[in-house]
Amino acid sequence: MQMKARTTGLAAMAIIIALLPITFPNPYYYDIADTALFNAVLCVGLNLLIGYTGQISLGHAGFFALGAYASAILTLRWQVPPLAALLAGAVAVGALAFVIARPILRLKGHYLAMATLGIGIIIYIVLNTEGWLTGGPDGLMADNFTVLGWKIKGDGSWYWVGGGLLLLAVWLSLNLIDSPVGRALRAVHGSEVGAEVVGVNTTHYKVLVFVVSAVFASVVGSLYAHKTGLITPGIGSFFRSVELVTMVVLGGMASTFGAVVGAIILSVLPHVLTTFEDYEAVVLGLIMMSTMIFMPKGLVPTVMRRLRRRRAAA
């Protein structure tokens, strides 16, 4: 039964991704869609940490930015091939996450929020300050992404890369959740001591998922750098971290499709709101507050539950 829901979901997503461009009136829409897809991939990773394992991170934009800068710096300054740079960035970010995860994930609730927030802000400030390496507030240019002589260029090609990556990410996430490792992660969320007494090393799993979600962020960051061509420290700001968490929570914690939906909504929203530019912050704030008040479980789980209830009633 679960198996079926998963295949249906994945197939539906593939079809939507494949057909969506037909509705784009101009290439600018590709740009918006690319950002939405990238954010969605990142949020699928972040959801493993926040939604499934129940550990908050208010600093994940920092890992995203580190991935982006690693790619830009390595390819530009040292002519490292983009794919190698992406992998190097992911390994470095994974190693950093691994080192800080152990002390950080001993913390709970607001203390964990504080610590991750601190990590994010420190990364942001370093990117801003070490201008000799990062270009400081002006940022860095990044070149096109080439693999084996094939160049990904233009928002149209990035759309297919982003779409393919999202399908892959969702598939991996759905697999993981329904596996021994995924159940251990969810058990950590449910009751740490309950998990420990049946043999789950909760520290190990918290560290593992923190590293996995950081690597997701780093990889997406690398691709983002190549796609936009210019990155600035702002991509690692506290506000960005908050935005990412909001995407996950808005779409629905502990729901892979929820994370995707949340990411897409919040990525598209600013473009819908450009007509009331001055009100953007007010509207975003209101949306954050009202979804959390009226649907604390997030959009997708809430809607699914209503549908199921209606079907049961019918």
Partner: peptide, 29 residues
């Protein structure tokens, strides 16, 4: 100390954690 975010059988399956050789890569795939 039940995992209220899981089903009954999933709760028990966490109990069998040690006997499942849980590893990341095979699980992801």
């Amino acid at each position: 100390q039940i995992f209220f975010n899981m089903t009954a059988v999933e709760n028990v399956m966490v109990g069998a954690h040690l006997h499942l050789q849980p590893r990341l890569l095979p699980s992801l795939l």
